[in-house]
Computed example of a mutant assay.
Amino acid sequence: MSRPQDPHRPFFSFGNPFRMISPKGSQLSPRLLSLLNAFEETLAERLRKLNPKDKNDILSLTWMNYAMDSLCETHTGIKTLITDLELPVTDWDEKWIDIYFDISVKLLDICIAFSSELSRLNQGHLLLQCVLHNLESNTSKKFVQVRSSLDSWRKHISSKNLRFQNCRSILDNLVESLNLPKVKNSAKGKVLMQAMYGVKVLTVFVCSVFAAAFSGSSKNLLDLDVPNTILWAQAYCNLQTNVNVKIRETFSGGKFTVLKELDAVDSIVKKLYPMIQDGLKPVEVEALQNSVSDLRTGAERLSQGLDFLAKEVDVFFKIVLSGRDALLCNLRASGAVTDPMLGTNVGEPTV
């Protein structure tokens, strides 16, 4: 993805991200401390709710939809916090702006990859519909077409999406961005940077899990160490451990996918295929009817789950994009934009 209006902005290394919490410099007033605590308590609660009681629910499309919804709410929450802090863009350190633009363009890239994969997986629904339609006839000729459609479906869903080739490098850059700039003499800036740290940790976690699920590779799974002094640290560590361990166990079991609904449909297909291999025996008719019913239900559940998740990913994409637009407008209004290319409105992404 390329944006001519976004000049190259390298990541910066700022050392200890929690140097800003040291007693030196500006201290937090009761109001600022209350704003920060409220934000972090809300984040901790989201992390706890995201940690499923039943590990088998991990990487169901329902769980992934909730994870993306939590990410959307958290990004919306940081916008609200910035407003409550009454921290005008003219007071933003240039390094903060550099980091924000760099992170946001990478998030837009990874959203496009997620949307591409969700669309690709949902295309397989058409093949399953062909299977169901042909199975209604119960003729040998139709069974040949059913086998062909099932073969095509298996080949389609097991193929690799090239958009995920650069996913790990994007994730590594996002991890590098977790380091926070050193804040001097700005209590509001300290609150913003600490809150932003929580937003970025959740963002890296969700994107890492999604990338692992969609790419079919645990190499995209990241394990982050967060300081245990943070209010939401324990909730995050519990979530990360449960989710990452479950995903790695699933991959080690030899399954081609960790997506629960997709794996369920694949199991039905594996059961159905031998029944239509050499024609039906009388005793297999009822078993076939049951498998067809299971396939119809599973295919519909998979398609709906993919649709809902695609909509949630699109919501997140728009939140990130609108945030970039808002910052650019504020920079132009304050006269802080010196690069004419940076002052151009951000439009839809170029794929």
Rank of each mutant, 00 (worst) to 15 (best):
R48H: 05
I110A: 01
V89P: 01
R31V: 07
S208Q: 03
G198V: 13
K49G: 11
R147C: 06
L132R: 11
P88R: 05
K142N: 15
Q129I: 11
L309R: 07
V131C: 14
L127Y: 11
A336Y: 04
W92G: 02
N185V: 04
P7R: 12
L87N: 06
N330E: 10
A195D: 02
N65D: 08
V313L: 05
Y197H: 09
L231Q: 15
N244P: 01
E261R: 06
K95C: 04
I319C: 04
F14P: 00
S322A: 09
L321S: 11
N345S: 11
F210D: 00
Y273W: 00
M193F: 00
V351D: 02
S13L: 15
K106T: 06
P181S: 09
D102T: 09
V285M: 10
L126W: 07
L171G: 03
L239F: 14
Y273R: 01
K281Q: 11
T241P: 01
A336W: 00
L35H: 05
N173T: 10
P274G: 05
Y197G: 03
D69C: 02
E73W: 08
T338E: 00
T350S: 14
K182H: 14
A213S: 09
A333R: 12
C167S: 15
R31P: 01
M275Q: 09
E94C: 03
S13P: 01
V131K: 10
D109F: 07
L43R: 03
I82N: 03
E312C: 03
E94G: 04
S13K: 12
R46G: 00
L222V: 13
E117S: 10
L87V: 07
Q234D: 14
S70L: 02
L321V: 03
R248V: 15
W63Q: 10
L221K: 08
L85K: 06
T297N: 09
S218E: 12
C329Q: 14
I58A: 02
Q123L: 10
K311G: 03
Q145I: 12
M341D: 12
M196E: 05
F101D: 03
L262P: 04
G254R: 08
V131H: 13
L262I: 13
L127F: 12
V315A: 04
L33Q: 13
E286M: 14
L309M: 14
N290Y: 09
S215W: 06
E86L: 06
P227K: 08
L127K: 07
T74A: 00
M68Q: 15
W63R: 09
Y100H: 08
T344V: 08
S137Y: 15
F308A: 12
S148P: 01
P17A: 10
C111D: 15
I99G: 02
A233S: 10
N161R: 05
F114R: 12
S293M: 07
F205K: 01
G189R: 10
H75S: 05
Q5L: 11
K160M: 07
S148F: 07
R3N: 14
L118C: 02
N37Q: 14
N330G: 09
A187E: 11
V201H: 01
R324L: 06
Y197T: 05
S252C: 00
Q240V: 12
F164E: 01
F317C: 05
A264I: 12
E176V: 07
K270V: 15
P181G: 02
V206M: 04
L121V: 14
E117H: 13
S70N: 06
K182W: 11
F164G: 04
L127M: 15
P17H: 08
A326Q: 14
L118R: 02
